[in-house]
């Protein structure tokens, strides 16, 4: 488990610090990196009702069983990754406690809990034109009739594998991307958003 005081950003080489501003009124796309997100991967059998109840008790909500959906309360959420796989996200400050709580509560069951916090970083892409930006590099149907707030999908964006999660109707998306592809995807997103009024905002979490 990583030491939170050593946490770095994969975008360090882009020197974004000076460019971060508070969003202008006319900004139609906002980009931010959320670096303080804990991510825990869960593999478990959804037909094991007892175990599902254990998770519900620890998390405060049930794991989503329907494909491409999420469930959550405040800053904590569970994202469906596969028929027996989920990703739990939470603030970094809860990382170790949550990992311990999940492991201890489910000790008697057959499952896998893995802390994958540092495998991927999360970008927040929001604003009225956010969907137009994504549609330039993603084949998924992101129209509200097919993809709404609370939906998630593992797919490809600009040729790299991402986990997309729509977090609000504005719309706003969390984009989970591998550490090593983060700088590439950030540059691609900035380029794709250039025709709109894009602002880089400071990490909100």
């Amino acid at each position: 488990m990583s030491d939170p005081s050593l946490r770095q950003t994969p975008l360090a080489t882009l020197h974004l610090g000076d460019r971060k501003t508070s969003p202008a009124h006319d900004a139609t796309v906002r980009l931010a990196e959320k670096i303080f997100i804990a991510k825990i991967n869960l593999r478990a059998d959804p037909s094991n009702r007892k175990l599902m109840r254990v998770f519900e008790k620890v998390l405060g909500f049930a794991l989503p069983l329907e494909s491409n959906t999420t469930n959550g309360k405040a800053v904590r959420s569970a994202l469906w990754l596969g028929p027996d796989e989920w990703l739990i996200t939470a603030p970094s400050s809860q990382e170790q406690a949550l990992f311990k709580a999940l492991s201890e509560a489910a000790e008697a069951h057959h499952l896998a809990i893995t802390d994958v916090s540092d495998a991927r970083t999360v970008f927040l892409l929001s604003g009225p034109n956010a969907r137009d930006v994504l549609e330039k590099g993603c084949g998924l149907d992101l129209h509200p009739r097919a993809f709404q707030t609370g939906c998630c999908a593992q797919t490809r964006l600009a040729r790299t594998g991402v986990l997309l999660h729509q977090t609000s109707d504005e719309p706003a998306y969390d984009i989970h991307v591998s550490w090593s592809f983060a700088a590439y995807l950030w540059i691609w997103l900035e380029d794709a958003a250039a025709e709109f009024n894009v602002t880089i905002v400071a990490d909100d979490g």
Binding site: P83, G139, L140, A153, T155, R156
Partner: peptide, 10 residues
């Protein structure tokens, strides 16, 4: 069968 219709490239 799990995620729904997706592009072949995935």
């Amino acid at each position: 069968p799990y995620c729904g219709p997706r592009e072949e490239i995935e």
